[in-house]
Lab assay of single mutants.
Amino acid sequence: SSEEQMCGTHRETKKIFCEVDRSLLCLLCSSSQEHRYHRHRPIEWAA
């Protein structure tokens, strides 16, 4: 659903897949302290 594609923290669309956590992130989350050094892919890659 579209609600699942929205970041609850930043209200941004989740467009990035974190390979380490195997989760979807928004651009702001992907550059956060928690995920900054993880490997990321565009969401299309994970589909």
Rank of each mutant, 00 (worst) to 15 (best):
S1R: 04
S1T: 05
S1W: 02
E3N: 07
E3R: 09
E3W: 10
E4N: 11
E4W: 04
Q5D: 14
Q5P: 08
Q5I: 08
M6T: 06
C7T: 01
C7D: 03
G8S: 11
T9K: 15
T9Y: 09
T9M: 08
T9C: 04
T9F: 05
T9Q: 13
T9N: 06
H10K: 02
H10E: 02
H10Y: 01
R11N: 11
R11F: 03
R11Q: 08
E12G: 12
E12D: 13
T13I: 13
T13D: 06
K14C: 09
K14S: 02
K14V: 07
K14F: 01
K15V: 06
K15L: 07
I16Q: 05
I16M: 11
I16F: 07
I16A: 02
F17D: 02
C18L: 00
E19V: 03
E19R: 03
E19C: 08
E19N: 05
E19M: 03
V20T: 11
V20F: 08
V20R: 12
V20Y: 12
V20C: 05
V20Q: 13
D21I: 01
D21H: 08
R22A: 08
R22L: 07
S23V: 10
S23G: 07
S23L: 10
S23K: 12
S23Q: 10
L24S: 07
L24R: 09
L24G: 08
L24N: 09
L25K: 03
C26K: 00
C26W: 00
L27I: 11
L27D: 14
L27E: 15
L27N: 15
L27Q: 14
L28H: 08
L28A: 13
L28K: 13
C29F: 00
S30C: 05
S30G: 07
S30M: 09
S31M: 06
S31G: 12
S32P: 05
S32H: 05
S32L: 07
S32W: 05
Q33F: 09
Q33N: 11
E34R: 04
E34I: 01
E34T: 07
H35A: 03
Y37V: 08
Y37A: 15
Y37M: 13
Y37P: 08
H38D: 04
H38V: 01
H38N: 01
R39H: 10
R39Q: 13
R39L: 10
H40L: 04
H40V: 05
H40G: 05
R41N: 02
R41C: 03
R41S: 13
P42N: 11
P42E: 13
P42H: 08
I43N: 14
I43V: 13
I43G: 09
I43M: 06
E44N: 11
E44Q: 05
W45C: 14
A46H: 08
A46M: 12
A47C: 03
A47R: 13
A47L: 05
